[in-house]
Design a protein around this nucleic acid. Structure first.
Length: 427
RNA sequence: GCGGACGUCGCAUAGCCUGGUAUCGCGCCGGAUUUGAAAUCCGGUGGUAAUUUACCGCGGGAGUUCAAAUCUCUCCGUCCGCGCCA
């Protein structure tokens, strides 16, 4: 959510952003006119309240003096004011609710370096990393590899849970755990505090960190308690400081979180989503920074640098993409994706997303820091370090051998008890 | 799950019984003093607005009342004890 002051004082900035995104200005105009009407109603109601309070002050004195006549006089005056206040107050509340409903849908202001474009075709390449692996045979897709090695059991998972769930087995499951530990240790060594968050959140906190549409298409709703399973640890870790005023000396707050992530993936279908590429549950190691507004752009680059180092250490080939206006979504002001090369499929596919949300989440969550002129919204940033299911796919496809086995990336061998190759499961 | 206590500005706390202007302390910010720091002193430190002022605000919601932090109901949360439990 944008600061209401943006609409009052810098509407031209929002308009320029809308032009860049190619959307009409209707919602901006609506917010501005509703805000003006709300301020007027609010002011009028305040003036009436003032009148009432002034009159009511005489009541205590009249009561004490036992002057019933004066009391009755004042009471009738107060009563008539009260009904007017009631009417104006309801009106003001409606206006504010309507204003903020529209304001919630207004997207964040994009950074100037975000390329223009209508969809993912408009994303631009930021950088290329690692060597594209060469094969003396036809590289297999991860779907083929998990099946021939019996590393993933999808039918039985469908039986006990549903489609897009999986049992991860044997050496691949061990690799998943090794990846988690390696990624957590790596980011932790950069000065990020390791945090394990709750895997469920209540509605109120969740509304602060996500689009309303996500409640239908992304999150599982757990009844009868009305909780939502988290789609990423970004959500609890960002909401962790909601409604708080943070001492500036505590900033930046840097965290590395690990959690299971649950996604309903409503509407996701197709051949390209087979296997464990797009699933209802996976584990993700996430970087989170809560920063002073002046520092957030430097930290955005730091998050990307951490990812690049981590993925280079895994020895994988990938590109970094600068997400364009049409592919951005509402929350981020700028976003980089890492897209890993999947030789079996012959495509680069998204494995990491690295965003600066500036004050957009903080405004809704009321996360502020103390300044000499009052409290002001902090900036929030988030970036995947590793989503294990997708990293496993990239490792399997890039490190595969002709016999279907998979080499273990150098940096993970010690966490695999010295194992250098993933061996098939017997069943 | 049962019983009890409690929820007040960043933290901590008074006010609640007996309804009528949000208390004291710590921390933080600014200023004075100082070579610098500490100590000391002064001021500020919830939100909104049309900002010398006004309104709102004491976990959320509702009610009683001219008037609610204060009384009533309800929901949420925390702590303590008991029970259950990886």
């Amino acid at each position: 959510m944008l600061d209401i002051r943006m609409f009052r004082d810098h509407a031209d900035v929002i308009r320029a952003d809308y032009d860049k995104r190619g959307i009409p200005h209707d919602s901006i105009d609506a917010v501005i006119s509703l805000d003006e009407a709300w301020r007027k109603s609010q002011y009028d109601a305040d003036q009436l309240r003032r009148k009432r309070n002034e009159a009511a002050r005489g009541i205590a004195a009249a009561k004490k003096a036992g002057d019933e006549e004066a009391f009755a006089l004042i009471k009738s005056e107060v009563d008539s004011i009260a009904s007017e206040i009631e009417k104006l107050g309801v009106k003001a509340e409606q206006l504010q609710t309507e204003r903020d409903a529209i304001r919630m849908s207004v997207p964040n202001i994009l950074h100037e370096s975000v390329p223009a474009g209508n969809d993912e075709e408009g994303n631009t390449q930021h950088s290329m990393h690692g060597m594209k692996p060469e094969f003396s045979f036809d590289p297999r897709t991860h779907n083929e590899l998990i099946e021939m090695n019996k590393w993933v059991d999808l039918p039985r998972a469908a039986k006990v849970a549903g489609s897009r769930f999986y049992f991860l087995k044997g050496d691949l499951a061990r690799l998943d755990l090794a990846l988690q530990q390696y990624a957590v240790d790596f980011i932790n060594s950069k000065g990020y505090t390791f945090v394990q968050p709750p895997a469920m959140m209540n509605r109120h906190a969740y509304e602060g960190v996500t689009d309303l549409g996500d409640f239908e298409s992304v999150m599982y709703n757990v009844q009868p308690d009305g909780l939502y399973t988290i789609a990423t640890s970004e959500h609890p870790l960002t909401a962790m400081f909601m409604d708080e005023v943070i001492e500036p000396s505590l900033l930046p707050i840097k965290m590395v979180g690990v959690s299971p992530c649950f996604r309903r993936e409503v509407g996701a279908h197709g051949q390209g989503d087979k296997g464990i590429w797009r699933v209802h549950q996976f584990t993700k190691i996430e970087q989170i920074i809560i920063s002073h507004p002046d520092d957030s752009w430097d930290f955005h680059e730091e998050l990307l640098t951490n990812c690049v180092e981590l993925w280079n250490n895994l020895g994988l080939h990938y590109e970094v993409v600068n997400i364009c206006t049409g592919d951005m979504g509402t929350v981020a002001a700028k976003k980089y994706d890492l897209e890993a090369w999947l030789p079996g499929r012959g495509e680069y596919k998204e494995v990491v997303s690295c965003s600066n949300c500036t004050d957009y989440q903080a405004n809704r969550l009321r996360m502020r820091y103390r300044t000499p002129d009052g409290n002001s919204a902090v900036h929030t940033l988030n970036s995947t370090a590793v989503a294990t299911s997708r990293a496993l796919v990239a490792i399997m496809e890039q490190y595969q051998l002709e016999d279907g086995r998979v080499q273990v990336p150098e940096c993970l061998i010690s966490r695999m008890n010295g194992k250098t190759h993933l061996e098939p499961c017997e069943w």
